[in-house]
Amino acid sequence: MEQGILNGIPLHFFLIVAAGLFCIGLYGVLGRKNAIAMLMGVELMLNAVNINLIAFWRYVRPETPAALAFVAFVFVVAAAEAAVGLALIISVYRNTKSVDPEKLDQMKF
């Protein structure tokens, strides 16, 4: 078997896709004006991290479950953070009728 290739896909293909997804998510977080759109960018970044973890697990050390534990915890953290973040956005919207994070630069409404 050729080095570093599984079923015809070399490892760095997966890493490049994950990097692309990460950078798209990064642009979403930094360049958008709506708080919910920013959270969507964060979710994309977390997905990219997961792809990276599982790709490395499969190609380098498939016999230990260490990377899989990391992946599971990234799932958990992403879910918890999405829930709390969206709850906060909804609460802020109720009080100020806007979801623009640039308007929230004071410690009060």
Binding site: L11, L15, I16, C23, L26, Y27, L30
Partner: peptide, 25 residues
């Protein structure tokens, strides 16, 4: 998009290029 969107796009593309260069075998 907000005011720093172009800068954000530039940073993203740069980061992507850096990562791609690094992970190539």
């Amino acid at each position: 998009v907000n005011a720093q969107a172009q800068l954000a796009a530039l940073v993203s593309v740069l980061l992507f290029v850096v990562i791609v260069v690094i992970v190539n075998p």
